[in-house]
Design a protein around this nucleic acid. Structure first.
Lengths: 330, 330
DNA sequence: TTTTCCAGCTAATACGGATTATCACCGCTA
DNA sequence: TAGCGGTGATAATCCGTATTAGCTGGAAAA
């Protein structure tokens, strides 16, 4: 329509017509005019094929993102991811095509894996298959994990929540309020985020000279003599409080309960737990930032974001024990 | 690696090696073996370029989908969309690249519109620009709107909520409880969903022989003598109840308040409104179903899904007026 | 023996852009 | 008049796949 070649249109469209390659102002205007009239837009697919970039960022979760079961947990991450993708001018691709087979998890790599459709990918989830991580690395697929991951045949790019310092701060607070016997309830293994919490706990009790117990469930907790308990997840905290109340114990008067994470499974509760806040939205944002960095210059950047302490109302001084004179940490 | 041509791999990969074109079992096995070993996956981008199909469905909203402001409203739609996309084996592309310019809405068509990246697109939002719809139609871009839309230079494919019958049922209920003077509070124009509600109201009051008033806001409502009010949106309902209480009126004893829609803006309320339920999740599902239909056979399918009545507790018989003997509609 | 047929595979091409090397043209110089 | 340099545009090529027409060698048919 403008009487020029495809090349010329491409050059004009991409503003390449000013440096090395020259197109006269006249021709350029004519092309732009036609583009305006027809609303022509370069096919993004062809574009991607040619220059190996999509401006599409993939989001992979082993579970469905939206359904209520996990929505509350994933939502804040997605908010951050969306915000940052928007700023970066990228679209988000949700890998919903990988059907969740009965009783199994989604797989990143299947016969029809579409992971490569995107320029890079954000991995969301409590755990990620180590094999999957290794393969992502060996295949050179750019990605960033939301949540710290151990090496998988090489360093894994991630943005994690820095639990140890936050857990330590909580333990110090409890110690300052006279607690000398603390329990940690939760599996403490499996996901890196769990072991980080447990490690933080172990180190912290040692540092403050308190006694630390690790229980995998609330059972037996009340026989240990612990006056404060750190729950690995919100669900654990809720269960502990319920069990305590059934025994006629008051929280926090008789037992302080600190929660170390948001719910990953749906729990409805109005309890205003003392604990820490996982900076989920910030993690989402940061993951996209790191991903664009990986796309530009490669590497395996790793970043830990601090967890904020939540004041709450489930931590109190130990009963019948004088509060130490140590100042309350903040 | 298998000592065969790219064509052969393509044929094997797509199972085309059985009909017209033949590949020996031996060769096929060899190719499949190598595919298994290397984890080779056809580049979806090249694939799309070649056969014009992606198995990617786009989701376009004028506002950001995830942020809290609109999350509660959009979420149920997305649940349905994701479910159905998963069943269809499609990935979802969220068009986050179109930046929301200060004070403006996102645009479907911009200089860098990426709408064509997807095979087709689901449009989400209270309103959709008529120009955008017209252009989608003329450019032959497959899409389905969530929410009924008036023609835009041609019929628009959509799945909508069927307000009129539900509104009518509510009006009939109110009438059966003695209400003869009903008010509708809301703009009643702008979005098709609003005019549908108002139209349902107007027709219903006429049908039951009651008196109907249309107010664009709650101001002046209490001078009209209306004993029941239908609020266009949840926010309107909340405002009305608040205003009523400030005047010392009890809801529903002195004033019945029916709500005709979910919140599109965030409102926190514990009021158990009588009203109707927009089948959002179902609409999301249906939208994807219709979209796949459009992709396969074209056309502009339109579907209206029924709204469910919500019993609630804000509808009561008119005070000082005998309840009519008419049976309560259900 | 020559032709026909068919199974089994591949060369060539299309898809719609981005990129690069090249080309035509003009005015100017030697 | 041949040579030269700069300007403005384009032909050719590539990206990785799907598709189609065609090629090859050997067996069956003529």
């Amino acid at each position: 329509m403008a009487g020029v070649s495809q090349t010329t249109v491409s050059l004009v469209l991409n503003g390449r017509a000013e440096g090395e390659v020259r197109i006269s102002q006249e021709t350029r205007d004519r092309v732009l005019q036609v583009i305006r009239e027809t609303g022509y837009v370069a096919d993004p697919v062809a574009r991607r094929l040619a220059d190996r970039r999509n401006r599409i960022l993939g989001v992979f979760t082993y579970e469905a993102v939206f359904p209520a079961e996990s929505a509350d947990f994933y939502h804040p991450f997605l908010v951050g991811i969306e915000e940052c993708a928007e700023e970066a001018g990228c679209d988000l691709l949700l890998f919903t095509s990988a059907k969740v087979v009965q009783g199994e998890r989604r797989r990143i790599f299947s016969a029809e894996s579409r992971i490569r459709l995107a320029d890079g990918c954000v991995l969301l989830g409590r755990t990620v298959d180590k094999d999957d991580l290794a393969r992502l690395l060996t295949e050179g697929i750019p990605f960033v994990s939301v949540g710290r991951r151990d090496d998988a045949g090489g360093p894994v790019p991630y943005v994690g929540a820095d639990y140890p310092p936050a857990v330590r701060a909580l333990v110090e607070r409890a110690a300052a309020l006279g607690h000398r016997r603390l329990a940690y309830v939760g599996v403490g293994v499996g996901a890196e985020s769990y072991s980080d919490r447990l490690r933080g706990f172990t180190e912290a009790v040692a540092a403050v000279g308190a006694e630390g117990l690790h229980l995998t469930s609330a059972d037996g907790l009340f026989d240990t003599g612990a006056t404060a308990v750190l729950a690995e997840e919100l669900a654990d905290g809720v269960a502990i409080v319920r069990a305590a109340r059934e025994r006629g114990l008051d929280v926090p008067r008789d037992l302080s309960v600190l929660v170390l994470g948001a719910h990953t499974t749906p729990v409805r509760t109005d309890i205003d737990f003392t604990g820490l806040r996982i900076p989920r939205r910030e993690m989402g944002r940061r993951a996209v930032e790191l991903l664009t960095q990986v796309l530009e210059s490669g590497g395996a950047p790793q970043d830990m974001l601090p967890c904020e302490l939540v004041e709450g109302s489930t931590l109190a001084p130990v009963q019948n024990a004088p509060v130490q004179n140590a100042p309350v940490q903040n």
